[in-house]
Write a protein that binds this DNA or RNA. Structure first.
Lengths: 228, 228, 228, 228
DNA sequence: TATGAATGAGTGTTCATTCAT
DNA sequence: TATGAATGAACACTCATTCAT
């Protein structure tokens, strides 16, 4: 009975497809809720109850998707940082100069952070950086170091300066309003720390920043961190 | 009977004095134990049981001195960072040039951190810096900024670069061995980030670092982080 | 696929219904156990462990229903006193003379108390009376006062005499056996205190007391307080 | 060396005497403090810390005088109720008519309670009456019953009516202000409950109440319960 | 697969009691 | 005898995890 069999398969396929879509939507809901919860209450305090309440799901449903809150933290972290990094990478499409990539990427990151308290709260509480962020940054630093664009001891030191300064800047922007010029001043300090000359810094900061597109809704859930 | 009265007063005084000494010793014991516990297990995981076991005290005794582990964290943080800052301040006695103070202070801090896993583990997990650290650093940065020694937008940006870079450097030194030159390379990057010229950086790093003395035992409880 | 949808809804409804039934049963179990525990050990001594052991539930389950033992006490109190009051009210159905209602209600209450150590232990330890008790009593006293049936200063004084005397009588019946005539003697004293004449008192006490029906199992968990 | 010995003995005696005086004063301080603590926080909630703080003594000192808070409660209870009873007894000196003694004693008790929140809070929380109170009351009731002055079933019922009504009245006076006439209205209700005729009640209440004297400071520590 | 009532180990917190001074 | 730091058993409370429906 081939026809019967085919029909059954089609029904099964349809069911499977619908089921997967529902799964994907529920998972996205949990992640979006988790980002807010983590941002609001830190990465240690929140309990599973907070997540299921924020996501509007049942207690047992949580375990269908994540086994621990730590696992959820990793997933939410990857989701958030990587999505921003992907968007920045897209905005830098075609640019090959490592210094320009670093300058523009840093400016984009800081501007986004300035308007996104969720992002800041999340990043400064997390001890580790997203894998994509780390890889992209080190690649550019290595490239610049190879061609002598950076006047700095080692790539490791350069990486620490960039990551550390941005992290503190995000902490400051989370704590309260900052002047409009603050993000670019931080970018300038980082470039100076890497050994970029004053003239180049001025040129890079004079460039218009490209527009970021295509980030998911979760990262923009909360309003701007500063009205200044 | 004045002699009787005096005797009674003397007894009371003696009791009070002995009591205070005992309190001070117990408090120091808890703080010393707390530093190790926090360094080993982070700032969120440890439970009160960990502290009382490490300090060798009874459950109830903990609450005589601290009401929450967060309160203990703040006290231990102040104790640790301030003690190092006091030692550095003492080693910088007489030096008034803000750039030299910053350069030498940073080098001292990083060298100490390189040999003290407890310090690193503690500082990178703590969101806030000790009050004394923050005050001393900002004072030097402000002084340098006033006399044009730093070529950087604002003192806030300078502070974020210094603190952020040192923090990441400490995280790296906690994670594994670093080259012998690493601390001074980080100091050089920071100075460059503040706008100090290459010649001055070389001169400052060529200066011998003074010897740190007089820190309590807790900060040196654990061995060096790297044999390299 | 309407049938599919209807099936899903039915499942959900069924789940909800089953859950509510289970909740109701557990809550009743806790209340029944609480009555015995409070009666046996007073209202201050028992700890949560006593309740969960008596109810046969887990530690955490307790907190799903009550947050403190005081909250449980209030709920158990309302449950117990109100249930008795409802039963008495039912037995008094159709009687409108406030004096007769008060006389018969008091006799019913005291007879029930005589055979129910749980009720006595509970009531005399509780500072507040159940809302229904207070309301019903005051309503009858007010009605009697209005029509001049009671010769007493104010309704407040009348209420204090009724409640206070019954409370002490319950304490006595809890402490040990009392003569068979005791409940009616107490009722007579109360009526006399309210100003009812001797002839009326004799007439009222000569009336047969109606039968109490329909009280839950908890109130009758313990046997009679006196075999006399 | 008899003279020497006598001198030593004298010194010892003096020391002993001074020590006993000090003991008595400390004990009185603890009792006075305990009355306030029990009245303010109930008889179950307060902990030893509350008592030593209120009395201004050291932790260990408490155990020199009382072993448990229950023991302290008993002592404070006896101290308070018996002191009031002694004072009332003194005010009733020479009166032999049991009805008059009961009427005047009740009026005195209620008037004192009306002005002493500490007394009320204490008595209504305590399950048991002071021994002296119980003895004196029952003696008068028995005497009255013997000579046919009371028209009531048994002395036990009479006692329950008196104690219960007074207790509820004290609870009411603790809860808030009452009319000036309230204490005497309660006394009238009690007398009526015991079978005293209206004419006698009016005569008894028309008598002036004697003045209470000689109560310790503790019972009057708190202000009047009602300004009305 | 989703639900949510129930579970109980783990942790926080209190407080009566001891004892060296 | 008075002191008060230290003790640790007892108790309160949370929350990750399970499982019948």
């Amino acid at each position: 009975m081939p026809s019967r069999r085919r029909a059954t398969a089609a029904v099964t396929d349809h069911r499977t497809r619908v089921g997967q879509q529902r799964r994907e939507r529920t998972r996205a809901r949990i992640l979006a809720a988790a980002l807010e919860v983590f941002a609001e209450r830190g990465t240690e305090a929140p309990v599973i109850d907070d997540f299921i309440r924020a996501a509007g799901i049942a207690r047992g449903t949580f375990y269908t998707y994540f086994r621990t809150t730590a696992e959820l933290l990793v997933a939410a972290s990857a989701d958030l940082e990587d999505r921003l990094m992907v968007a920045i990478e897209a905005a830098l499409a075609g640019r090959t100069d490592p210094v320009e990539r670093l300058a523009t990427g840093t400016r984009l990151w800081l501007r986004r952070a300035r308007d996104d308290r969720v992002l800041c709260g999340f990043v400064i509480r997390s001890q580790l950086r997203g894998r994509l962020v780390e890889e992209t940054l080190v690649k550019d630093l290595r490239a610049g170091h190879r061609r002598g664009a950076f006047r700095i001891g080692t790539v490791a030191v350069a990486r620490d300066l960039v990551v550390g300064t941005i992290r503190e800047a995000m902490a400051r922007m989370l704590a309260g309003p900052v002047p409009r010029a603050y993000p670019d001043q931080v970018a300038a300090a980082i470039l100076q720390g890497l050994g970029t000359g004053g003239r180049d810094i001025r040129r890079l900061l004079a460039m218009p920043v490209p527009v970021l597109t295509g980030e998911g809704s979760a990262a923009t859930a909360k309003g701007p961190s500063s009205p200044a």
